[in-house]
Design a protein around this nucleic acid. Sequence first.
DNA 1: GGTGCCATTACCCGTTTGGGTGATATTCAA
DNA 2: TTGAATATCACCCAAACGGGTAATGGCACC
Lengths: 210, 210
Amino acid sequence: MKNIAPIKICIVEDDALILKSLQQVLNNAEGFQVTGTFFSAEAALEILKDHCPDVLLLDIDLPGISGIEAISKLKHLQPELNIVMLTVHEESELVFSALRNGAVGYLVKGSSSKFLLQGIQDVYEGGAPMSPSIARQVIASFTPQTEHVLSDRELEVLEKLSSGTNNRQIAEDLFVSTNTVKAHIKNIYKKLHVNSRAEAVSKAIKKGWI
Amino acid sequence: MKNIAPIKICIVEDDALILKSLQQVLNNAEGFQVTGTFFSAEAALEILKDHCPDVLLLDIDLPGISGIEAISKLKHLQPELNIVMLTVHEESELVFSALRNGAVGYLVKGSSSKFLLQGIQDVYEGGAPMSPSIARQVIASFTPQTEHVLSDRELEVLEKLSSGTNNRQIAEDLFVSTNTVKAHIKNIYKKLHVNSRAEAVSKAIKKGWI
DNA sequence: GGTGCCATTACCCGTTTGGGTGATATTCAA
DNA sequence: TTGAATATCACCCAAACGGGTAATGGCACC
């Protein structure tokens, strides 16, 4: 497993000591290579394209453009870039925001070298290093609601609405008349306090019902 | 740390051997107690309320009602129940579906006792045991797309559509004519391959654009 | 035994939408 | 400089939608 092309890593970190330390750990390890370092998101945005890393380590708390903001800008330049956040406090709301914005994981500053290298390796292989606690926050954010204001039938109709089906077709699919379908839709509107298919669908999806 | 109330666990697993093995591992461990076992989701649904576990281990591949389907039904009965899937193939699409449906994590059948106990402990403490690979799928599912097929203006119109705004109102909001709004909507339809507001909204939300 | 929720069907009517076709001006990259 | 994409506007027409009102039977809960 030696002499394989190493994983190319860029680091954005404003603390020179931490940057130095990360760089040493990575460059001394087999299979890892730091190809660029930056002290700010702005600097990274300007010349990142010349370094083309496999993984970008991005400090979450940067002066100027924050790490969180930088994510979308960087992804805009290189959509396939794997961004891993560097954070001090693992349980921060910021970490969660970062994941929401397109980061694939995070590493805690001050972790053991072994842990850092493993995390980067994970990302390189398509994984996402994170603690069980953060992972749970992430899945909770898209978990469907269990309480149902709508009846089963209404939910069924709502599904059809979301796929753009018109009343006549829904009626055929459910083996009822179009009048019935209209009645269901009217009830859905009442319950969700909306007055169009689009809004009903939007609300239902955001609530995780469909 | 001894003699604290143990974590109460119920298991739903149709394979008697696996069930027996799990039960032994858990009951022999300090701090864990199996308070009920079931061979099917149906059985669990009927009498689970009498057992009231902290964590429910649920086989993903059950006869009759599948594990995936069972999740929502169980959550309906006990919304706060922590459900952990039992799976043979960790990288299955099924695992991903389970998390989407409200499971908080999964355990791989045949893992070491240490790993099983740790996973359950994680869940009990508010975590979510999963591999980096699955975690990445999960976050990918709600990460906004960076590549934009739609123009900024079209995206703006799409937002309005999702809130149920009609053409006349959108026109007013954007200070253009209704004809222009119609033109934008037609272009959105072409690009997304849809032909109704509801479907456009549905697609856009699921892609994370709005 | 009423009261409420659900599923079903019916009718009317005005408004909105979706689809077709076509035009003009700007911008930006090939 | 010549397309391609974008943003803007116009007109027409058939189909679909949203809202109002009303009725029936089933089922469950109190």
